[in-house]
Amino acid sequence: MAEVKVASEITGSVWKIVANIGDKVVEEDTLIILESMKMEIPILAPEAGTVKEIRVKEGEPISEGDVAVILEK
């Protein structure tokens, strides 16, 4: 099973965790919503897979490049 690391493209804070471990997602499904630049900006699934791990918590700061979710293909 290949893993896909899904990182944040932007610095901000974790506003809402939308995905649950075990969810099957398709490309561009919203996994996490960040608050950044006064906006609610989603972290999207780059490809289809199953959510294996969520590495962030709501309210936490997150930096560009930080891995937020791991998908399993």
Binding site: E9, I10, I41
Partner: peptide, 8 residues
């Protein structure tokens, strides 16, 4: 496209 990086 605000969907990515808020459009920045």
């Amino acid at each position: 496209n605000p969907m990515f990086k808020g459009g920045a």
